[in-house]
Design a binder for these strands. Structure first.
Lengths: 153, 153
DNA sequence: GAGTTAAGTTTACAATTGTAGACTTATTTT
DNA sequence: AAAATAAGTCTACAATTGTAAACTTAACTC
């Protein structure tokens, strides 16, 4: 797996993530926009949202534009970079043997565009040339050596 | 997305996840196995590992087998169910528009077996019949209605 | 069966996160 | 300019998580 920690910023927590989504979607947002958008979805007070904005600034994911008071908060990383950070953190801790079935399941359960599917399909064709017959479990340090991928039995 | 919260157990934390991986891999494990396996990988004391075992029991993810003292701890959910829980929790909070690129990236960066690729490829073929031209962003409640998927510009 | 060791339990404490009130400082409105 | 409002800062507090010491109990060894 390729690791994607942009710099070494601390991670974005779930609640903070909701704030980032709005900022990304609106391409920057003011406090009142964040408050109204988020309150449609989450049962949060203004105060809670302000705290999340502040923490995201402290963590380095949001920064203010301009010097005049209704500041616009902008994201310091792209949405895709943020998503990569989250997914990589998760996949780095999954048993290699289970990654395939997991990706299959995700493809199955999510709506993908025609173009996504076309790209995927080409990618898969490419990978088939060099793919191994099986992917061994990598959960235990000594699994490969001792069991030749036969743990999980 | 299909939601996969087995019952309504609280989530497995990252540190706890490492314990579960070993239990799943060994199909149940005793304390000393957990301690030795985990200490090869993580810089944890015995005590820390015992705490994680206990919390996993409390959360309902581990249970003890037998009544005699070297208990064997068994997982109450399968590894794939655990993985589904984690991935679903993550994907439920990603912008729908970014799911495609994200899955493409994951397929690109991970090793999949021949069989995984074949399954994926069939699945994709099936999906192509009904896939939409584009997947709109769903980050804002009113995004669909107002912007017809034209947020994120 | 006394001592050693492994297992299990109790308690603890700091960091992070979710949640939010209260207070201060600008900005806008009349 | 005074009042009202919005924005921003400070402080707080409970829950969860990472981390671990200390203590108790059962099991194994000689």
């Amino acid at each position: 797996m390729t690791s994607t920690q942009p710099e070494n910023l601390p991670e974005i927590s779930p609640a903070e993530w909701e704030v980032m989504r709005i900022v990304w979607t609106l391409n920057g947002a003011q406090t009142h926009e964040l408050i109204s958008s988020l309150q449609e979805k989450m049962d949060w007070t203004e105060s809670t949202i302000k705290t999340l904005i502040r923490r995201l600034q402290q963590k380095g994911y949001l920064e203010r534009q301009g010097t005049q008071r209704p500041y616009v908060y902008q994201a310091t990383i792209t949405e895709q970079a943020g998503i990569n950070q989250q997914t990589d953190a998760l996949f780095a801790n999954l048993c290699a043997m289970h990654v395939g079935p997991t990706l299959i399941r995700l493809v199955k359960n999510n709506t993908l565009s025609q173009q996504d599917l076309t790209e995927l399909s080409q990618l898969i064709a490419t990978k088939q040339a060099t793919a191994p017959a099986v992917v061994a479990c990598d959960c235990l340090a000594d699994c490969q050596v001792e069991n030749q991928g036969e743990c999980h039995e």
